[in-house]
């Protein structure tokens, strides 16, 4: 790791000021991606701004409309929240299976989304539930948030403060992990929402994406059979030693089928 200046602001205003002042500042949330990246010397920020002391970024609020999760809320907290488990059980279950136990104890929803790792789990839930991402500047609809490989709609100097998930009629997430890293090789989140069915895929492409053909089929007939025959094109999907684009495309259908069945 290259050395850097470390800051631990106590307020959003201080964090934004530190970020603005830094030549090449990086925000540190849970650090589950940033610190390994720094250790491998793949990044050399001048300043690291730790958001851990900003109390307003933490916490879970559940009301009749849905669940709002503060950006610095840890995966383990979402997984263990009885309120989340009651409102959106699929979300709690997803959080309970991110990474490993120690990753869940440190990793945060804001960090995960801002990083937009193609194999992260949360993007599937955000897109699958049609969540809203709130930043210090604005709110961003899930459909507008994920732009590409490690690329989001966030602008420079913009910090995620919370994410609001509307409560679906039913939902489920199914993941087929990469055997080595245990990240999602393919993860599919399906939800019956107020605006109709949503099917969001992570792991398979450069960033999370929706499968309209499956959503249309589910709108007509909410059943595993409805999606069983729908294949996403392999072209453009990720490929590595553990899964070719063709294999991933196939798994999207299998995981979608299983998610619909699990959602009931």
């Amino acid at each position: 790791m290259y050395d850097f200046a470390y800051h631990k602001p106590k307020s959003m205003a201080d964090a934004l000021a530190a970020l603005k002042k830094a030549a090449d500042g990086k925000l540190l949330a849970g650090g589950m991606t940033l610190i390994p990246t720094l250790k491998q010397r793949l990044a050399q920020p001048s300043d690291v701004i730790d958001l851990a002391a900003i109390g307003e970024l933490r916490g879970i609020k559940v009301d009749g409309n849905g669940v709002t999760v503060g950006a610095m809320t840890k995966h383990a907290e979402v997984a263990a929240s009885a309120d989340v488990a009651k409102a959106i059980p699929a979300l709690a279950k997803l959080a309970a299976n991110i990474g490993d136990g120690q990753v869940r104890n440190r990793g945060t929803i804001g960090g995960s989304l801002a990083n937009s790792d193609p194999a992260a789990d949360y993007p599937a839930a955000v897109l699958g539930l049609g969540a809203t991402i709130t930043t210090n500047e604005r709110t961003i609809a899930a459909d507008d948030f994920f732009k590409g490989l490690f690329e989001t709609a966030l602008k420079e100097g913009e910090i995620i403060t919370s994410v609001t998930f509307p409560k679906p009629a039913k939902a489920a997430y199914m993941k087929f992990p990469n055997p080595a890293s245990r990240y999602a090789m393919v993860g599919v989140f399906v939800a019956q929402t107020s605006s109709g069915p949503r099917v969001a895929v992570t792991g398979a492409g450069p960033c999370a994406f929706r499968v309209k053909a499956m959503e249309d089929a589910l709108a007509k007939n909410w059943s595993a059979d409805a999606v069983a025959g729908i294949k996403v094109p392999a072209n453009g999907l990720n490929g590595d030693i553990h899964g070719s684009p063709e294999y991933r495309a196939h798994l999207v259908t299998v995981m979608a089928k299983r998610a619909v069945a699990a959602a009931g």
């Binding site: 055997p179 080595a180 890293s181 590595d240 030693i241 553990h242």
Partner: peptide, 24 residues
């Protein structure tokens, strides 16, 4: 079932060079 050591056939890069890619 798990442990797959892969060198790229052309470049000779070790593609399974960490626990992110080598399945322990």
């Amino acid at each position: 079932l798990l442990e797959y050591t892969v060198y790229d056939k052309e470049s000779g890069q070790l593609l399974s060079g960490s626990y992110m890619d080598y399945t322990m």
